[in-house]
Design a protein around this nucleic acid. Structure first.
Lengths: 200, 200
DNA sequence: CGAATTGATGCATACTATGCATCGATACAT
DNA sequence: ATGTATCGATGCATAGTATGCATCAATTCG
């Protein structure tokens, strides 16, 4: 699926990418707080004004491709077989998000940087949580749409909330006590299994 | 338990309260975004600089007494009987937080204002979520301390994360579709029951 | 009573974020 | 091909948040 983008769009993506790379490099060297938007723009050789044309806020440069992953999970839910058991579907959708995050952000080291910074930068942590919340709402809506006879809106959001809450909380504690990637992923799986048991 | 505070401390609390009340009044009249810190300070008849001496950020003025509730829940967990079933304890602790929030913020109308604004003001929403996260971590830690033989750190945080996630998600959807207080509280109870089933 | 503590204040400043007008390159229709 | 519309990038101006620092003044304590 090679996208056939016009020259204009390609240029736009190029400056966007330049901004991301400049930001990541600067964050790693000087620390998030000691990097200004002006510096990022300067390093990417664009106007400071242009930064905010691509990202709503300074934090968003580190959450660049998160939406794609959510879309992936939404698609998984929408395309499920009607007989599929509910918790298994959810587990599958979330597993896919995790796997995708692993692949796409591991190579660039973005995932590691993000988790490291999220632990120490309140503003970034807040933004991340906000994304989780909107993603949750979308997932719940999709789930309820997929099983309108088995789920009401409240139960759907409770279920998704429990799943996401459990996974992120366990992942966070695992990360904070210094676990490696494998252990973290294991913690997430355990959390999912725990919640999955609560639904018939 | 009447606190015997010095004059200095009493004055400090008075300006703090004045700031809160001024802020709430202004938010209700003009909307969160159209009220500046300078205005709040002015209405409370203090210097703008003083505002940031009492609150880390503009949002915090609306989360003034949240910590007290968390402490309450922590105490409940710490004082539990050793034989108590785990999910029931958690439900009890969270139920208490909810009840306390109802009582203490209902009279001032603060709770209503907060939920209304949190739905429409991203910055406030972010701050609220952040509080939830730290509260979760504290609850998980307390829970694990109370049952060191039955729970490891990962499972504890997963459990608490699931509980808090389910409750807040269902409460939010209930609020967003215009449910009244009673229905919201009912949604929260259902969510808790759902998660409680997943633990032996 | 004198000295230390501490809340409040004023001033200066860095930075984020947005609105608005404009320029110029790309895209498109005739 | 040429004129026109679109849209990304830019510069300028500005509002507003948040912090550091020095200082004042009231309370607290020795």
């Amino acid at each position: 699926m090679v996208e056939k983008l016009g020259l204009r769009e390609r240029k736009k993506q190029r400056t966007r990418q330049a901004l991301i790379e400049a930001a990541v490099r600067l964050f790693e060297n000087k620390g998030y707080d000691h990097v200004t938007v002006a510096e990022i723009a300067d390093a990417a050789e664009v106007s400071p004004r242009t930064f905010f044309l691509h990202f709503q806020a300074k934090e968003d440069v580190l959450l660049a491709n998160a939406d794609l992953r959510v879309d992936l999970a939404l698609q998984t839910i929408a395309e499920c077989r009607a007989e599929e058991r509910l918790p298994e579907l959810l587990v599958r959708a979330m597993d896919q998000m995790i796997a995708n995050a692993w692949d796409s952000d591991l190579s660039s080291g973005l995932a590691a940087l993000r988790t490291r910074l999220a632990a120490s930068v309140p503003a970034l942590q807040a933004r991340l949580l906000q994304r989780y919340l909107t993603a949750q709402a979308e997932l719940a809506q999709a789930l309820q749409r997929a099983f309108p006879d088995r789920l009401d809106a409240i139960t759907a959001s409770a279920l998704v909330g429990a799943m996401v809450g459990a996974v992120s909380a366990s992942a966070l504690t695992a990360l904070q006590r210094g676990d490696g990637p494998a252990e973290v992923r294991n913690a997430m799986r355990e959390a999912m299994a725990l919640v999955a048991r609560s639904v018939p």
